[in-house]
């Protein structure tokens, strides 16, 4: 048996619905239809009255989730695409994210964002918004790169008492497979060494973990040992694991599919520079998408975002300095 990243997300939701009567799912087309990506397939039938189709009203969808959370429920919101969460942005960052701080009433909502580029998806179905949400206090932002993390981090998201932005990469939905669902997992806020190495550290998350790993495989044929750190959670960010890795390698390359300006890669570099300046043998570098909207055509898209090739090239440059 094997299970995909998408199926893991579905299974985590099924388990959350089964184990906790406070959980319900609300989003566009999530009911009988099972969601645009089928992440809620059959759940409406298995859990009648708890998987609810929403109107195309992202603001009201998140607002409703906050109200339900005040009443002690644990809603899971599916945004059809991360890109459309900007319509519900206000409710996420100003309503959900401030509730506990203002009132001491927790706001346990999970907002699932199917995000990231896929071929042919263009400017409005490809965005990576983790940095924008992480910018705001009062939210946890998770970015699973593996089937196991898709499952266990989603369950952890539903279990904690704070708003969670759950960034699930659409490119991983069908391709990424595991033998079985995990029975134990690292907690939220702990990064994971995806691949060990001693020459250079690549810090990344979500789909870029796999591009970075492919780059590391390519560089291994040239004799380089690249360490790949999978952040898993961009907020909180596991600075300790990152700095410990840089202490071993002396070189840092941060890779993100999101835009560069003020993003997760900038944050990682700022922290490593502040806390581990003396550990660095070369200036830390980062590689992000280009600073334009995400292009539609595969030729342009492939050049817009980091890939194994461009990561390997950036790593080679850094290894030479």
């Amino acid at each position: 048996m094997s299970i995909t990243y998408l199926e893991a997300i579905r299974e985590a939701q099924a388990r959350a619905l089964r184990d906790d009567p406070r959980v319900f799912i609300y989003g566009q087309d999530v009911g009988e239809f099972g969601g645009a990506f089928k992440a809620t397939k059959n759940l409406a039938r298995e859990y009648p009255g708890r998987v609810l189709d929403a109107p195309i009203s992202e603001d009201a969808i998140v607002g409703l989730a906050v109200g339900a959370a005040i009443e002690g429920m644990r809603p899971i919101i599916e945004m059809q695409f991360a890109d459309f969460s900007t319509v519900g942005f206000n409710q996420i960052v100003n309503q959900a994210a401030t509730l506990f701080w203002r009132t001491q009433v927790p706001c346990p909502i999970t907002v699932r964002l199917p995000f990231g580029g896929t071929s042919g998806s263009g400017p409005f179905h490809s965005q990576s918004l983790e940095a924008i949400y992480a910018h705001y206090p009062g939210v946890v932002v998770l970015t699973p790169a593996t089937v196991e993390d898709a499952y266990s981090l989603l369950l952890a998201a539903v279990a904690i008492d704070d708003p969670v932005i759950f960034c699930e990469h659409k490119l991983l939905y069908y391709h990424l497979k595991a033998e079985k669902l995990p029975t134990e997992a690292l907690p939220i806020g702990k990064a994971r060494i995806h691949r060990e190495g001693r020459d250079l550290t690549i810090v990344t998350y979500s789909a870029m973990v796999h591009e970075a790993a492919a780059a590391a495989t390519e560089l291994a044929t040239e004799g380089w040992e690249i360490e790949v750190v999978d952040l898993r959670s961009v907020k909180p960010l596991d600075t300790d694991t990152v700095v410990a890795s840089v202490a071993r390698t002396g070189r840092l390359l941060c890779v993100g599919e999101a835009w560069p300006w003020g993003g997760v890669t900038a944050e990682v570099i700022a922290r490593v520079t502040a806390e581990g300046y003396g550990l660095l043998d070369a200036p830390p570098q980062r590689l992000n998408a280009k600073d334009t909207p995400v292009p539609y055509h595969p030729n342009l898209w492939a050049a817009h975002r980091p890939t194994a090739r461009s990561i390997a090239a950036a790593a080679r440059n850094l290894l030479r300095t």
Binding site: V62, A65, E71, P75, N94
Partner: peptide
């Protein structure tokens, strides 16, 4: 912004 929050409390109930 508060209206849908009221909706959520009502739906939860």
């Amino acid at each position: 912004a508060m209206i849908s929050v009221v909706n959520g409390m009502l739906l939860a109930r």
